[in-house]
Amino acid sequence: MGLAIRRAERADRDAVAGLLDAAFRDDPVSSWVFPDPEHRRRVHGRFLGVFVDVALEQGRIDYAEDGSCAALWLRVPAGEHGGEDAEDDVPARMRAAADPDNERCELVGRLTGEVHPTAEEHEYLLMIAVDPARQGEGLGTELMRPVLERCDRDGVPAYLEASSERSMRLYERLGWEFTGTAVRLPEGPLMWPMWRKPRG
């Protein structure tokens, strides 16, 4: 009895954003971006909703039919990508949507963008969220498995940024490796960029 997965559609947008909000509200990075818990409660869903919009526009969202988990994926081509002059400036969108006076909304995207690999086309796991009540059941691994199997079959690497040491250890078990250059948020936590080579 495997996890039933479908591709999210525009009608799922708010439900997926709500899932991300619940899963990441107490995450170290979210707590750094929005230090005040009450303020975070009000704006966090809008902040992460931009990720949902980007994945719906430019990539895909694998979504459990029971709403328990979702993974946001982008296929990133080789070469330069993103940046302040890009037509679609995601860090600026996040700040504008959630908290225009809070530069941390934008800074987190700028800093992770600076270390994002550009040499090879890859699958970028933008975010993965599991309902807090269902965490620890292996749903995230099951949700990622079809994409990782396809990466292995097609010879495509994958990339992500882990936002906690706990999540980094989980990703390591699935073949991701820390790139060696952590992102240090000013007066805040670390983020760990991770690269996964396709397995033959």
Rank of each mutant, 00 (worst) to 15 (best):
D62N: 09
A70P: 11
W73Q: 12
Q58D: 13
E65N: 10
C69P: 13
G79P: 00
A86F: 01
L74M: 12
V90S: 05
C69F: 15
E84R: 14
A86P: 01
G79S: 04
D66C: 00
D85N: 02
E84M: 04
D88M: 10
A70Y: 03
E84P: 08
G82M: 04
G59F: 06
W73R: 14
R60I: 01
E57A: 15
V76Y: 00
V76E: 06
G67L: 03
A70W: 11
W73N: 11
D66Y: 02
G79C: 00
D89Y: 15
G82P: 02
I61L: 10
G59V: 02
E80K: 08
Q58C: 02
G83M: 03
L74T: 09
S68F: 10
A64K: 07
G59D: 03
G82H: 01
L72P: 01
D89E: 11
S68H: 04
Q58E: 14
D88S: 03
A70K: 11
C69K: 13
H81D: 06
H81K: 02
P91G: 10
G82C: 03
L72Y: 09
C69Y: 14
G59E: 09
D85F: 02
A64F: 11
D85H: 05
W73L: 14
D62K: 06
D66V: 04
D62T: 11
A78H: 04
D85I: 00
G67C: 00
L72T: 06
Q58A: 12
A64S: 15
P77T: 05
G59C: 05
G82Q: 01
G79E: 07
E84I: 07
A71Y: 06
I61E: 10
G67H: 09
G83V: 10
A71T: 01
D89V: 07
L72K: 09
G59N: 10
R75F: 00
D66R: 06
W73I: 13
D89L: 05
E84L: 02
D89T: 03
Q58N: 11
A64E: 10
D88C: 08
C69I: 15
E87L: 01
D66P: 04
A86E: 10
G83W: 11
E57Y: 00
A71C: 09
E80G: 12
A78L: 02
A71P: 03
D62W: 13
V76N: 00
G82E: 06
D88R: 15
G67F: 07
G82F: 01
A64G: 14
G79W: 08
E57S: 14
E87Y: 00
E57I: 04
D89Q: 08
P91N: 05
V76P: 01
G79A: 06
G79L: 08
P91L: 07
E65S: 11
R75T: 09
A78D: 00
E57K: 14
D88I: 12
E57G: 12
Y63M: 09
R60D: 06
A86S: 15
W73D: 12
